[in-house]
Design a protein around this nucleic acid. Structure first.
Length: 152
DNA sequence: GCCAACGTTGGC
DNA sequence: GCCAACGTTGGC
């Protein structure tokens, strides 16, 4: 069982949206490094939900991987902003996972708090200039994050 | 809204 | 295979 961190802009898709859905396909990732992490995910892995491009940015909750290695349907949808004309149905370029809601943290763990608590080596998201939207989280760091998020 | 960081594209 | 131009991300 591994831990991950996945970013989403709350204006586009927030933890509240996920709480209202039974499950959701995490679509729209169009970065190869992020996609490779998505492909490593296995059922029952846990992922921290991170709100980006908002004030303040930070970790807001937890979700679980409930289905692994799904073809991202938006890559073949010409009306989608994530449409990729270079991706062939016989060899889809973009794969992702289906996630399920687990919990919303009692208190958001802001980026400022994350920076004050973890080094860039411990937690990639605090690294300056980091633009990855999907990244692995070390188990010891993950346990601390759970503790921080659950104690308001 | 700005802009630094950095990924991608395409000409050569 | 290099690299300039361009596009996107995301904190501020």
């Amino acid at each position: 069982m591994r831990y991950w961190l996945m970013k989403s802009e709350p204006d586009v898709y927030s933890i509240a949206d996920l709480a209202n859905d039974p499950t959701e396909i995490w679509d729209g990732v169009r970065n190869y490094q992020a996609r490779n992490f998505l492909r490593e995910m296995q059922v029952d892995d846990l992922a921290f939900f991170y709100h980006s491009n908002t004030k303040p940015p930070g970790i807001v909750g937890l979700m679980k991987i409930i289905e692994a290695d799904i073809v991202d349907p938006t890559q073949f949808d010409e009306s989608s902003k994530y449409y990729d004309p270079k991706s062939q149905p016989e060899e889809p370029r973009w794969r992702t996972v289906k996630v399920g809601y687990v919990e919303t943290f009692a208190e958001q763990i802001t980026l400022d708090t994350l920076k004050a608590t973890f080094s860039p080596e411990e937690l990639l998201v605090v690294k300056r200039g980091n633009r990855l939207s999907v990244m692995p989280v070390d188990e010891a760091v993950a346990e601390k994050l759970l503790e921080m998020g659950r104690s308001a």
